[in-house]
Amino acid sequence: MTNDVSPFPAARALLLAHGADTLPHPGGTLLAHLDRVEHRLAAWGARPALRLAGLCHAFYGTDGFAESLLPLDRRAELTAAIGEEAEHLVHFYASCDRDVSYPGLPDPAGPFRDRFTGETLVPSARRRADFAEITAANELDLAALDPEFRTRWGASLLRLLTGWRPLLTDAAFADVRAVLAPRG
């Protein structure tokens, strides 16, 4: 990847090459969801690497979405398309064991378990904040599109993301409140 070429077209081309446009996902296809997550991060003012990670966050599957577009032994392909920082964020996001990692995420000493290796680590503040922003964008996309999802998971997501408030930007947290706060 060269610095004078935007990695966004390369990321989209790789997503298309690996079938993200045909893989069913709530709200349409996986590609449609990924595009919406990236647009939400952009609306929050996220830096390009974080937006790219949001666009590609499901490449290796996640704890909540088992399908993967690339196996872990082919990480270099994604790195070539989106750059090292963004790929590391994608891998970190995909590696999350949610049951262990979510509760302690806002705690600077909170454990983060890698579901691929079983290793437990303590991520940096920036890594935790980036993870929280991608997670919020991902979950808010689903909640904004699907009233049944919002009814079933909205209250617990609001509690979770409110607990993560120290990690979220003001724009992200305002969106959390707009999408998930009870309407009266």
Rank of each mutant, 00 (worst) to 15 (best):
E85Q: 14
P166E: 01
R152W: 02
R40F: 06
D114I: 05
T79Q: 14
L14I: 06
P108M: 07
R47N: 09
P7F: 13
W153F: 14
E139K: 03
H25Q: 05
L15I: 08
S101H: 02
R115T: 04
V122N: 09
R128P: 03
Y60A: 11
E67M: 06
T22R: 15
A81Q: 10
E38H: 12
D130V: 04
G118F: 06
L89A: 11
L89T: 07
R36D: 12
H39C: 10
T120W: 10
G64P: 00
G27P: 08
S95A: 15
A137C: 05
P147T: 03
P26C: 01
D35P: 00
W44H: 15
L15V: 07
G154A: 05
C96V: 04
H18L: 04
P71Y: 06
I134M: 13
I134T: 09
T169A: 13
A49D: 15
A181C: 13
N138C: 04
G154L: 01
S6W: 08
T162M: 04
D63V: 00
V100W: 01
D4Q: 11
L34T: 03
G64I: 03
P103V: 01
E148Q: 13
P9N: 11
E139A: 00
L145C: 06
R177T: 15
G184C: 08
A66T: 06
T62R: 01
E148P: 00
T169S: 15
T2Y: 11
F8M: 14
P24M: 00
T29S: 14
L158K: 07
L52T: 13
A32F: 04
A58N: 05
F59A: 09
G104I: 01
A66K: 05
A136R: 07
A20L: 03
H25M: 02
A43R: 15
S101T: 08
L142S: 03
W153L: 12
A94P: 03
T117S: 15
G118N: 09
Y60W: 11
F8P: 05
L31Q: 08
H18M: 00
C56I: 07
P26H: 06
F92Y: 08
